[in-house]
Amino acid sequence: MAPRAPLIVIPARLGSTRLPGKALADIGGRPMIARVWERACAAGLAPVAVATDSVEIAEVIRAGGGTVAMTSGAHACGSDRIGEAVAALDPDRRHDAIVNLQGDNPFLPDGALAAALGLLDDLAADIGTLATQAAPEEADDPNAVKLVGTQIGPNRMRALYFTRARAPHGDGPLYKHVGVYAFRRASFERYVALPPSALELRERLEQLRALEAGMRIDAAVLDKAAPSVDTERDLAALRAAAREQEKQ
């Protein structure tokens, strides 16, 4: 059965390797994590919580009336952090799908979360995610993660691999992964019980743990997607985008 009672959890920490403190970076007068939380709530799909080990992040979300699950600072990736949070937030397992919305995409397009969850209508899919066609300047950028997959329907792909390298080789479009994961509850619990995998550690991409374990990840291909924030350049671009929105 397709999931009907999802829970959206946003993992957030201050100790980002590439851009420390980015969760609280100011974007148009609002901390980035607050903007991500607001976008998730505005989607109207499910309850939303933030999972963090940071008191500062927790204070920002609680000040806006949001739910926070405090977690350990030792987690290897966002989904592992969410695993601890979900055990506290939903011990009775009322939610049959868990959405990992990464905390560095404050301008996620309307309908994106629903598109990821909608992929789970296919009972063969363990995880739903998102992708968009990569821009030319993103092809060789290791911060723009590429999804290598095969098309299985209109605007739908089955993921075969994710990489920071330019892939696949040859002519044709490249697809950039967008940091959203919609898990079936059973698939999520299986995932977080697994140890980090060899390719996950090598590429520093948590989704490879699922693929190495034989789990199926499908991706909805969006017409466009706002950039995530991995570098100071990304942060400057999002601040410029926020200024443009304010003018409209």
Rank of each mutant, 00 (worst) to 15 (best):
V178D: 05
L222Q: 04
Y175Q: 07
A198Y: 01
Q245A: 14
I8Q: 04
S79P: 10
D218H: 07
E232Y: 03
A139C: 10
A43R: 03
D141I: 00
R233A: 15
D126I: 03
S228I: 00
G111F: 02
V60P: 01
L14N: 14
G179H: 05
E200R: 11
K224A: 15
I27R: 00
A85N: 11
P109I: 02
W37L: 03
R156E: 12
T17M: 04
A226C: 07
H177P: 00
H75N: 13
N155M: 10
Q133N: 01
V178H: 08
A116Y: 01
R81Y: 05
G44M: 03
P47K: 01
P196H: 09
L208W: 06
F183N: 12
G64P: 08
K176R: 15
R184I: 07
D141G: 05
T163N: 14
R216S: 12
T150E: 15
K176H: 13
G214A: 10
P196D: 09
A34M: 07
V60G: 02
A51I: 01
D126A: 08
R164F: 02
A5V: 02
A186W: 02
L14R: 14
A97Q: 09
P31N: 05
V99Q: 11
A23P: 00
G15V: 01
A144L: 01
A165H: 13
D121A: 15
A159H: 07
E189N: 10
G28P: 07
E38F: 00
Q245T: 05
Y181N: 15
P20G: 05
A116V: 00
A219P: 01
G103C: 01
R216Y: 02
E232T: 12
R18C: 03
A193Q: 05
K224N: 11
Q245P: 11
I98F: 09
N105P: 00
E246F: 02
A63K: 08
